[in-house]
Amino acid sequence: MIQTDDQMLIAQQCIANLRRILLEARKVHSRKDYARMAEPILLEVQQREQDILEYLSSDLEEPVAS
């Protein structure tokens, strides 16, 4: 679960990495094998994107009064 902005940026970077892996994998696997090997990675992308959406849609913390 993402709790800070920094963690959200890390999650975004992970998603970018996984997308790059998939782009490269498309070039070197047959269609059927790509579908098989991409499945768990796509699931991972989906889960991490969901984490980001949950974080971005969560309530802001109350600012600390100075």
Binding site: N17, R20, I21, E24, A25, V28, H29, D33, M37, P40, I41
Partner: peptide, 16 residues
């Protein structure tokens, strides 16, 4: 289980 052919290359493997 994640898997791939070695032809994804060392750079992508490193990234993974």
């Amino acid at each position: 289980v994640f898997w791939a052919r070695a032809s994804i290359g060392p750079e992508i493997l490193d990234l993974w």
